[in-house]
Amino acid sequence: MTEAISENAAILENASVRRVRDALRALGAGERVIVLSDSARTAQQAADALGCPVGAIVKSLVFSHDGKAVMALVAGDRQCDLAALGRALGLGAAPKRADADLVRRATGFAIGGVAPLGHAETLPIAIDASLGRFDRLHAAAGHPHAVFPLSYQELLDWTGGVAAEGLGKA
């Protein structure tokens, strides 16, 4: 039991998780970060650990457009439609998948723990409108074992993202 508490404390004090916790506090959201005993690198793993539908997991996906990062926040049971992302953000063309270096540089997070907020740079963000079908969502909190709960409206408000119909395709 002491080992589990020590491990949870270490995850909560991880620099990336601290950045998410600080961002949530700055938004007036308080302490929301949940440490999971199992990894939540994928939406399915997170849903299994939380006992929620996979669609209620917010996937934070980073893409590249003209060498700059853009983000899509997509329901866990959907795939990102890149053409819809380009339209939603007014890019003129569909972005491409970002490499791990661009993800880290733009967000400050490693793939597998990218949060929808607390980024190193301000990113244009499009949000899959299908996430609105759930009362409670969960998003990565900067570490593969850390998530936080939020509502669809909070996701919109806190990220400054634009809701996009058809961004997430089944």
Rank of each mutant, 00 (worst) to 15 (best):
L117Q: 12
E121A: 09
D77I: 08
A46I: 12
H65S: 13
D101T: 15
L156C: 08
R41V: 15
A93P: 04
I34Q: 12
A139K: 11
D77A: 13
A56L: 11
G142S: 04
V147M: 15
P144L: 06
D135T: 12
G67K: 04
L27D: 14
V20T: 15
S130W: 07
P95F: 09
A106L: 06
D38Y: 02
V147Q: 15
D101Q: 14
G161N: 00
V35I: 15
T159C: 03
Q44H: 12
G92M: 00
E13N: 15
G51S: 11
D81E: 08
E154G: 14
A43H: 10
L82F: 06
A84C: 10
N8C: 07
A29S: 06
V35K: 06
A93N: 06
K96V: 14
H138I: 11
H143G: 06
Q79K: 14
V103D: 00
D128R: 08
V58K: 07
R97M: 15
E154M: 12
I5F: 10
W158R: 04
V103K: 02
P53E: 15
Y152K: 05
A75M: 08
A29L: 12
V114G: 03
L89E: 06
R136F: 02
A75G: 14
R78I: 03
I111S: 13
H143P: 04
I57V: 15
A83T: 14
A4I: 13
A69N: 03
V62G: 02
V70S: 02
D48Q: 11
I34A: 03
L156W: 01
A163R: 11
Q153A: 13
T122M: 00
L167R: 07
G108L: 10
S151I: 04
P124I: 00
H119N: 11
A141G: 03
A9R: 14
L150K: 03
R105N: 13
Q44T: 13
P116M: 07
H145E: 05
R21Y: 08
T159W: 01
S151M: 07
L61D: 03
L89Y: 03
E3W: 06
A100R: 13
A26I: 09
E3G: 10
G92T: 01
L73Y: 10
G118W: 12
L123D: 01
D157N: 07
G166I: 00
L137V: 12
I34F: 01
D81N: 14
I127P: 07
L61T: 07
A9K: 13
L155H: 09
E121P: 00
E3H: 10
P116T: 09
R136G: 00
I11R: 04
R133F: 01
L123H: 02
L85C: 09
V62K: 08
F134V: 10
D81Y: 02
Y152S: 03
A100K: 14
T122A: 13
S6F: 05
L150S: 04
G132M: 07
G161Y: 00
E154T: 12
A72T: 12
L50E: 08
G67V: 06
S16C: 11
G92H: 01
I125Q: 00
V103H: 03
A4P: 02
F63A: 10
Q153W: 02
Y152T: 04
S64F: 03
